[in-house]
Design a protein around this nucleic acid. Structure first.
Lengths: 120, 120
DNA sequence: GGCATTGTGTAGTAGTTACTACACACTCAC
DNA sequence: GTGAGTGTGTAGTAACTACTACACAATGCC
């Protein structure tokens, strides 16, 4: 398996893989499009600063075409919309999630599909 | 349905219902057992201060025999162990939770039971 | 009526979060 | 060789989080 990257490493690798073929992915350009200072992004990519807030992470995800939930996870966070869903029925979701903790991916995936396909 | 209480209101009602029959549930006593200043708890119960951190909420849950996940939800938080589980497989859990967002309780409950009983 | 206990008011604070602003040195194109 | 663009270093900060410490007035108990 690919060794787990830090948030900063992941960002840098994602961006550098794109800047190779598209000059629009320089650190400065990406920072500008994401609405943050270049020096801030620089520090983030080198894990010198902790990851930014959810809004900025989402912007970066858009710019780099990465999955926001994955990026947020690497940043040690969970999407605020998921938190709201859990908070709306805490006992229900807490139970479910703890039950699924040690289930293999394919089992959980089956669950996702069953729910989606409405076999209910 | 019971109108949704704030975190502070919920705490106060829980505590006052107990102090009626047990003097050990005065604000000061509970605060002491939970390891916080009485004035702090007072402000929290009146929603004058935002809810405390997860550790204190858990202590209060123990003292008042309330469900920690419910208390955390009222405080606008989600248990850190659940966050860790989600972060470990962000895409998987994000999908599942968003799918379940609008499912009725009984459907989700069935899921919980099926998983628990290992009908897999 | 005095001591204990109750809830609350006021004031303060250390630590963290989430950034901005600006300057600098290097490289590259032409 | 100069102007544009690159990444990075330094410095600072406003807002929020999560509390403590102490003093005070009211009530209860015997």
């Amino acid at each position: 398996m690919p060794k787990p990257l830090t948030f900063g490493q992941f960002l840098r690798e994602s961006r550098e893989s794109k800047v190779a073929t598209d000059r629009g992915f320089s650190l400065r350009k990406v920072a500008e499009r994401a609405g943050i200072e270049p020096s801030y992004l620089s520090k983030i990519e080198r894990d010198e600063q902790p990851p930014p807030g959810e809004a900025v992470i989402r912007q970066l995800a858009v710019e780099l075409s990465e999955d926001p939930d994955v990026l947020l996870a690497l940043a040690g966070k969970v999407s605020s919309d998921l938190l709201a869903i859990i908070r709306s029925r805490p006992r229900l979701f807490a139970d479910l999630i703890r039950q699924l903790k040690s289930m293999p991916d394919h089992a959980v995936l089956r669950l996702v599909r069953e729910v989606r396909d409405g076999s209910w």
